[in-house]
Design a protein around this nucleic acid. Structure first.
Length: 275
DNA sequence: AACGATCCCTGTTGGC
DNA sequence: TGCCAACAGGGATCGT
């Protein structure tokens, strides 16, 4: 579930907790977590002795800047989360990577399904991981004209195009459904059929939806998946309009929310509000 | 090129 | 109760 609001919430916590901290050592317990690191041995070698100057984000990628011109990249995948704790405090199951900082705190990467990954990359390696990403949906959302151009003549469902990180980076399955409900657009519509006014509504809906998710600390669907780095849950789930609400009444018109599989991803919408 | 299916991995849930 | 299939926040890759 980690999508842009969850990653940005995580980033803000890490910036407050760990910006300026020096890495002492790291421990990788599942080597699969380093599969995007060109030479896996570089990970621990490059982290040791590095200082984190700040935490950034592009789409769903968390990008910590290190001194020495290195970037420490984390993707949370489906089930990943970051925890910050004191060394020695009880560990969650599936703690796959631990990075220890001077002063006795550590960053823990918990990820049961291991779809997430970490890598410490030099500038010339960064492109192979972040290169294909489109503009960030929160900080750099394209203007309507640019969005219209990106969707023109596309036959894929608009929902699928919103999930394509090359067009806009940051939306996932939850917030794509939520934004389309806010925009009153049927998720199955071919992207190329969206008219001018609809593009504007979609753009506004993306901004509003992401801002709302962020305001509530993201969406924690259950206690086993996404949580904030301090272990508390994001509160946006209670405010979702369509995701996970099949057969329950639309919050706008009362019509039962419908669900279909689109590109193997479950898709929720209101058949009355969204056309 | 663009599109859709499949696979990666582990855990939970719902139906029989 | 027990078992097994279906499904879950993402994305790389492979046919067509």
């Amino acid at each position: 579930m980690p999508e842009l609001p969850e990653v940005e919430t995580t980033r803000r916590c890490l910036e407050a907790e760990l910006a300026g901290a020096a890495v002492v050592s790291s421990e990788v317990r599942r080597s699969r977590m380093l599969r995007r690191q060109p030479r896996p041995a570089d990970f621990a070698d490059r982290l040791a002795g590095s200082t984190v100057t700040g935490f950034g984000r592009h789409g769903k990628f968390l990008v910590a800047e290190l001194d020495r011109d290195l970037s420490w990249v984390t993707h949370l995948g489906m089930s990943g989360r970051i925890a910050v704790a004191r060394a020695g405090a009880p560990e969650a199951p599936h703690t796959n990577v631990v990075v220890r900082f001077a002063g006795g705190r550590e960053l823990r990467f918990v990820d049961p399904r291991t779809f997430g990954f970490m890598a410490v990359l030099a500038d010339d390696e960064l492109g192979s991981v972040l290169g294909g990403l489109g503009p960030d949906a929160l900080t750099d959302l394209p203007r309507s004209a640019a969005l219209e151009l990106a969707l023109a003549r596309r036959s894929a469902p608009i929902k699928a195009l919103l999930l394509d990180q090359r067009i806009v980076a940051g939306l996932g399955n939850i917030y794509a459904d939520e934004a389309l409900h806010r925009a009153r657009i049927d998720p199955r519509r071919p992207g190329g059929t969206l008219a001018g006014a609809e593009i504007g509504r979609l753009r506004t809906a993306i901004r509003t939806t992401l801002a709302a998710g962020l305001r509530w600390g993201g969406t924690s669907l259950d206690d086993l998946a996404y949580l904030l780095p301090d272990g508390t849950a994001g509160e946006y789930k209670a405010r979702l309009r369509v995701y996970g609400r099949e057969d329950r009444p639309c919050r706008v018109c009362g019509t039962p929310i419908r669900r279909v599989m689109l590109r193997q991803r479950s898709t929720h919408w209101c058949p009355r509000c969204q056309t």
